[in-house]
Every structure is written in C-alpha cells, then in structure tokens.
C-alpha cells in the first residue's frame, strides 16, 4: 500500500518534467486561447475564424475536392516555374563557372538582374504576358534563377584546386576533371541554392497568384476576402506553410542521398 503514493508522486514528477521540456505546449496553449477568445466573442468571426471553424472548413474543402484541385493548380505553377528557373540558373552557372569568357559574358548581367526585385517586374510581365498562367510561371522562374546561379557558380569557383591538381596529375582530361572533381565538389553549394530557390518560388507564388487568378490557392484567398471568409484564408495560409515545409523536406532528402560522404552524415 505504501508504494502507491510514492509511485504516483514519481509519475507526477515525470509528467511535470515532460511538460517543462515540451516544445509543443506553447503552440497548443496559443490555439486554446485563440479558440477561447473566439467562443466568448472576443475575436469576431470576420476578424479571424476560430481554430475549430478553420479545421471543419478545411475538412469540407478537402472532401469537396475544392482544396486539392486548387492546390494542384498552384503546385503546377511552382513546379513549372522552378523547373524553368533552375534549369536556366544551372546552365548559366556552368557557363560562367567553367570558362573565363563565360564569366565575362554572363556574370555582369546576372549581377544586374540581382539588383532588380523580381516582384517589381510584375506590371511589366502583365504587359508582356497578359494575365493568364504565363506571367505567374514567368515570375516564379525569373525569381528562382538567381539563388541557383549564384551558389553553383561560387561552388564551382571554390572547388579545391589541390584536388583538381591531383586529378590532373593522374592524367584526367578536362571533361573528366569537370565530371569527377568540379561538379561533385560544387554539389553542396548547388543544394544550398536549390533550397533558397524553393523558398523564393513559394514567396513569389503567393504574390503572383493574386494576379487575376481563376484557380489556385491565391484565387481561393481572393475569393474568401471578398466574402470575408477568414476561415478559408487561414486554411490557405496553412497550405502555403505546408508547401514550404514540403519543399524543405524535399531538399533535405536529396541532400542526405547526394552528400552521404560528408562526415556529419556519415557518422549518423
């Protein structure tokens, strides 16, 4: 009988310890306060919908297919824009990184491009490409060129010359040196650039989608704004966040496969 109170105290102590080190606790409390504020009318529905309302709206939108259809449209915009932007960025970085003439030709233009905020080009892109899918994809592509370009270019240029010299001493041709030494050596930098490009692409997507869209997450948000449906707006914000997280996880997965030789990953 005497063991029970002490074990109860023990488990209570363990619980207190768990709660103190729990990082999920404060976000949960925040949600609870938010819900409480909405329930007792402190936060009006038209200012911000309650978490429970957001959740049920999300379920409804998911079940009706409204969410997945529009998400797919937005996803395609990012994917196509990124594919174009990354390809251009990689090609330009290879040209500038691997040859002096290439550097002279490409790098000044890229540095000029860097100083122009991509989103400031939106009006020009609308004049050029209209208000359909093209300007949205073009904006995303344009924005995602630079991080990939800059990181891969500097990655190529900072490849260890001693390794290159070693390869040269074993009679490797220029093409073999590029394939076996320069490109693998620049890969970590490319992946850093890729990560930046992905987050920039999602940022630009949010703005680009506000251009007279008839589908996509931006369209949902614009529509919801007109009807003051804050619950739908919050759902879309959450989906944007999930998109960002997914992009990050994607690069992480690629990294852990491509950079297995790194000691930090090797030791795991």
């Amino acid at each position: 009988m005497s063991a029970r109170p002490s074990s109860r105290i023990l488990s209570f102590g363990a619980l207190a310890h768990t709660l103190r080190s729990a990082r999920w606790l404060s976000p949960l409390l925040f949600l609870l306060l938010w819900e409480l504020g909405s329930r007792c009318g402190l936060i009006p529905e038209r200012t911000l919908a309650a978490p429970s309302t957001v959740l049920s709206t999300m379920l409804d939108m998911a079940l009706s297919g409204e969410l997945s259809n529009n998400l797919w449209v937005s996803f395609l915009r990012v994917a196509i824009g990124l594919a174009i932007g990354i390809t251009i960025g990689v090609v330009l970085a290879l040209v500038a990184g691997l040859s002096r003439q290439g550097e002279v030709a490409v790098d000044p233009i890229m540095q000029i491009k860097r100083t122009i905020p991509t989103l400031a080009l939106t009006p020009l892109f609308i004049v050029w490409f209209g208000i359909g899918e093209t300007p949205k994809i073009a904006l995303i592509a344009f924005a995602s060129i630079f991080p990939v370009y800059l990181n891969l270019y500097s990655g190529i240029r900072s490849v260890d010359v001693r390794l290159l010299e070693g390869a040269r001493s074993f009679g490797l041709s220029r093409a073999e040196q590029i394939w076996h030494v320069i490109l693998p050596g620049a890969l970590p930098s490319l992946l850093v650039g890729l990560r930046y490009s992905l987050s920039v692409a999602i940022l630009v997507l949010v703005v680009a989608e506000q251009i007279n869209a008839s589908a996509g997450l931006g369209y949902l948000i614009n529509n919801a704004r007109d009807f003051m449906r804050t619950d739908i707006i919050v759902v879309c914000l959450m989906v944007y966040a999930v998109l960002g997280l997914a992009a990050d996880a994607l690069v992480r997965a690629v990294e852990s496969r491509a950079l297995v030789w790194r000691p930090s990953i090797v030791s795991q």
């Binding site: 001693r162 693998p184 890969l187």
Partner: peptide, 14 residues
C-alpha cells in the same frame, strides 16, 4: 608517372 602528395588529395565524394 604518379604523384603522392603530402595531403592525400582523395576526392571525398568517391
């Protein structure tokens, strides 16, 4: 001919 350098100069990704 072949060289062995002071630092082994192995390619870390191979």
């Amino acid at each position: 001919r072949a060289v062995v350098f002071q630092d082994a100069r192995l390619l870390p990704w191979k």
